[in-house]
C-alpha cells in the first residue's frame, strides 16, 4: 500500500464520516461540523496528492491553505445563517427547516 493511498484512505474516511453526519445529524451545527470534516479531509487529500506524486508540492500546499481559509469563511457564513434560522424559526434543528417542500 503506497503512502498516497493511505493518506487518501484517511481522507475518504473523513468524507464518509462527514457524509454520515450530514445525513444523520439532527442539528444544523452538527451538520456544519460534518461538512467541515469533509472539507478538511479534502485538504488532506490535496496535500497528500501533491506531496507524494510528481505534482508540484507548492500547488497542493497553497490549495490546502485556500481550502482551509474558505472552509473557515464558509463556517462563518453557515453559523451566521444558523443564527438567523434560530431567530426566525426558534430552532436550529433540521426538523424545523423542512417547511419548503413539494
Amino acid at each position: 500500500m503506497s503512502p498516497l493511498l493511505m493518506y487518501q484512505l484517511v481522507a475518504l474516511g473523513l468524507l464518509a464520516i462527514g457524509l454520515f453526519g450530514i445525513v444523520w445529524r439532527k442539528s444544523l451545527v452538527g451538520m456544519l461540523i460534518s461538512v467541515e470534516l469533509m472539507l478538511n479531509g479534502a485538504g488532506l487529500s490535496i496535500v497528500a496528492s501533491t506531496q507524494l506524486t510528481e505534482a508540484g508540492s507548492a500547488t497542493g500546499q497553497i490549495a490546502a491553505l485556500f481550502v482551509m481559509g474558505l472552509a473557515a469563511a464558509e463556517a462563518t457564513l453557515v453559523l451566521a445563517i444558523i443564527v438567523v434560522v434560530a431567530k426566525r424559526l426558534k430552532s436550529a434543528e433540521t426538523d424545523a427547516v423542512s417547511r419548503l417542500k413539494g
Binding site: 481559509g69 473557515a72 443564527v83
Partner: peptide
Amino acid sequence: GISYYVYALLFLAFDVDVLYLFP
C-alpha cells in the same frame, strides 16, 4: 447571549485570513 456567537464568527473570518500571511 447571541453576541458570543457573533464574536466566534468574527474570529473565524479573520483568523484564517491572517493565516495566509504566514507563508
